[in-house]
């Protein structure tokens, strides 16, 4: 049976660079194989937790705020998010993706493959615009996701 594959973009469209996860999903539309589900969400942990059970391979795309230069693309295995990133929370949502991953891991719900593509953001204020550095990172993030999707296809 082929793997059920999905990409979820997480973020709040009204909070500057936090919207980048959603924008990456929109840029991916029409450019991924038909079987790949593309989803957008605010990153509510319980939504993400539910999605874990629907896929065998999942890529989460979210904004990251870790102090790297804006626009930097980070890649993590969802099972091994660096401790310092967890401690700082991987997104601006407070309760974030790392909580869903942690809960998913503890409950044994994580898909066989779960990866996180993080895009370093700089501006997370309400009503803020996307910063040019982050806008410029969207295509690189898209390429990163497409590459990972083809890797996942090959190993299956």
């Amino acid at each position: 049976m082929p793997r059920r594959r999905g990409v979820i973009g997480l973020g709040n469209p009204d909070r500057g660079d936090d919207s980048v996860g959603i924008l990456v999903i929109r840029a991916l539309r029409g450019r991924v194989p038909e079987d790949v589900a593309l989803l957008e969400d605010t990153g509510a942990p319980l939504f993400v937790l539910e999605q874990f059970q629907k896929f065998d391979a999942l890529i989460l795309v979210d904004a990251v705020h870790s102090g790297s230069p804006p626009g930097t693309i980070h890649g993590f295995d969802g099972r091994q998010i660096p401790r310092e990133v967890r401690a700082r929370t991987i997104s601006s949502h407070g309760v974030g993706v790392h909580d869903a991953l942690g809960l998913g891991e503890a409950l044994g719900l994580l898909p066989e493959i779960v990866r996180v593509v993080g895009i370093e953001g700089n501006e997370f204020d309400f009503g803020a615009a996307l910063t040019p550095e982050v806008e410029g990172a969207i295509e690189r993030a898209v390429a990163n996701v497409l590459e990972q999707l083809s890797e996942i296809e090959e190993v299956s």
């Binding site: 909580d99 942690g102 809960l103 891991e105 503890a106 409950l107």
Partner: peptide, 22 residues
């Protein structure tokens, strides 16, 4: 410290909670 650590030791309870919520 949080529900994640709770879930590691009390998996069935947290699952029950999530099921109820759902």
């Amino acid at each position: 410290e949080d529900a994640i650590l709770l879930a590691r030791d009390h998996k069935a309870r947290v699952e029950a909670g999530l099921k109820l919520k759902k």
